[in-house]
Design a protein around this nucleic acid. Structure first.
Lengths: 143, 143
DNA sequence: CACAGTAATGCAATCAAATTGCATTTTTAT
DNA sequence: ATAAAAATGCAATTTGATTGCATTACTGTG
């Protein structure tokens, strides 16, 4: 996934600041989601904690990033597919949270449509599978 | 769902204390999941915060309660179906997190089997739908 | 039914994620 | 270039959760 931070900011009419660009760059480095604490570790010397929180919130609101909560209740972020917007997150793919390395993957697996009970109107879905990821499975086999 | 706290404790060879009984009683009151902060509000005068956390953790470990993270990263708890055990949570039903009243419902909707990519071994799944619940939908229509 | 050993509880302190208010700096439109 | 608006940085605070340790409560044994 080729990401151009400057274009993304323009598309969503967000002001171009070096902090905002850095956050996008950093998140775009990897296809797996990155947690707020990890981001803070990487960017903490360049960007203030609070600014980081604010940027992440804006990006989520605008549909630029989607947020996945891990089992510890910590926010993890990944770049949204291009079809996401401020009005609606098309985040209908399955996430995989490795219980060994704790990485969160955005899988190319679509969440099947599920019928809600009468009266319940679902707007979005979040599906997370917990287990052992490819890399950790390989590590186990090697030993 | 008829719950007998004393029996549940016995079945899992947990010591019978009034705090443990109270926690189960309180959670069994409602079919919707209850958050740690709500529980603390209700039980804070009878049970110490730390004890509450410890009891909830034990119950989750033993497969008595299951824990659902809401969008704020706060733990919510609901009584497990009878088939849950220490080894495995059979928590394969869909949760519904109302974005209006923020209640979390355990729906009688089964999470469909999803095929994981090669190398990824899923042990458990968590699916949460976000939207407006039955009660909140009715409230809107009335006004 | 007493009592000793073990486990659970309560309290104080601490950690960590996230948020708020406000002064300062940066961006952008003119 | 500059003025208005917005973003950033800093300090302080809130909130969910955890840890260590002294005290209290439970349970099995005699």
């Amino acid at each position: 996934m080729k990401i151009n931070p400057v274009n993304i900011l323009k598309e969503h009419s967000l002001k171009h600041t070096k902090q905002r660009v850095r956050v996008l760059e950093e998140i775009a480095l990897d296809t797996v989601a990155i947690s707020q604490p990890e981001l803070e570790k990487k960017l903490g010397k360049e960007i203030d904690r609070v600014t980081l929180y604010r940027i992440l919130n804006i990006y989520e609101d605008k549909g630029i990033l989607h947020r996945i909560m891990d089992m510890n209740g910590t926010a993890n972020y990944a770049i949204c597919s291009s079809s996401c917007s401020e009005e609606h997150h098309h985040d209908e793919h399955v996430h995989f949270n490795c219980t060994s390395c704790s990485k969160i993957y955005c899988l190319d697996v679509t969440v099947p449509k599920m019928v809600m009970p009468h009266g319940f109107k679902a707007v979005s879905m979040n599906t997370t599978a917990y287990g052992i990821c490819e890399k950790c499975n390989l590590l186990v086999k090697e030993n």
